[in-house]
């Protein structure tokens, strides 16, 4: 097996493996960043403030309606400029260069967050309002209700939707290869270019992605089963 990895694939096995690790790292980081954006977005969408609702609506509509590749180009070409402009406001005039990893995570996280926003908003709304009233009647404060009643149930309701978002995020990381970050797609592209074995290397890339999506599907199924262990089934 190890022999095949080093001598087979024209010696590109190790790079492909580290590419897979990079894909997983980018996907996990952007999914978590997306969850943070999603929680903030859902809170904004459910808030009483018209401004916050409008901003969140703009965020989800724009990001979900514009191609992922365009968002990645925006951050790839304009990300450093944006950060420098913000730093300039705080009086820092130096040059700031973002690496491909943080740009990739920011871009995919932004996209993932727009989808997570909708999933989390839907999940929060499916917690019966009576339960919140009951908790309030028991004398719980806002934060305690959030922590004890709202969040645990929201997590359970959101899990299937978040599973879909994870699959999207995982597949969107392939687009980061345009920024030359050495994830699966980039390594496959380089290997295909140098060995002239495009079919072989893109097939290997496809298999690696299939393995990742299959494993994560099973993981999410397990998580769903675990999260709904206290729910009665008909």
């Amino acid at each position: 097996m190890l022999d095949l990895l080093t001598s087979g694939l024209h010696g590109w096995g190790p790079q492909l493996l580290s590419g897979t690790a990079m894909t997983i790292a980018v996907a996990l980081s952007s999914f978590l960043l997306g969850l943070a954006f999603g929680a903030a977005g859902a809170a904004a969408k459910l808030s009483d403030s018209l401004l916050l609702r409008g901003l969140a609506e703009l965020y989800t509509t724009a990001v979900r309606g514009v191609p992922e590749l365009l968002v990645i180009y925006l951050l790839f070409f304009g990300g450093s400029g944006m950060i420098m402009a913000v730093a300039g406001v705080f009086g820092y005039g130096g040059l700031i260069e973002l690496n491909a990893f943080s740009i990739g995570v920011a871009a995919v996280g932004l996209i993932s967050g727009a989808y997570s926003t909708e999933v989390i908003r839907g999940a929060v709304k499916s917690v019966p309002y009576g339960q919140i009233e009951a908790a309030r009647a028991c004398g719980m404060g806002r934060w305690r209700i959030l922590r004890r009643v709202l969040v645990p149930q929201t997590l359970r309701f959101a899990l299937p939707g978040l599973g879909n978002v994870w699959q999207l995020t995982l597949k969107d990381t392939a687009l980061i290869s345009v920024t030359a970050l050495a994830e699966i797609m980039r390594v496959a592209h380089t290997a295909a270019g140098s060995t002239r074995q495009s079919f072989l290397f893109y097939s290997v890339a496809a298999l690696l992605y299939l393995a990742l999506t299959t494993v994560s599907t099973t993981a999410f199924q397990r998580a769903e089963r675990y999260a709904s262990r206290g729910v009665r089934r008909a």
């Binding site: 687009l175 893109y202 496809a206 999506t213």
Partner: peptide, 18 residues
């Protein structure tokens, strides 16, 4: 289960090699 980019590259670069 695979990204569309892989499918596009497989068809455009991969098939032309066979």
């Amino acid at each position: 289960g695979t990204p569309l980019l892989v499918q596009i590259f497989l068809i455009y670069y991969g098939l032309s090699q066979i």
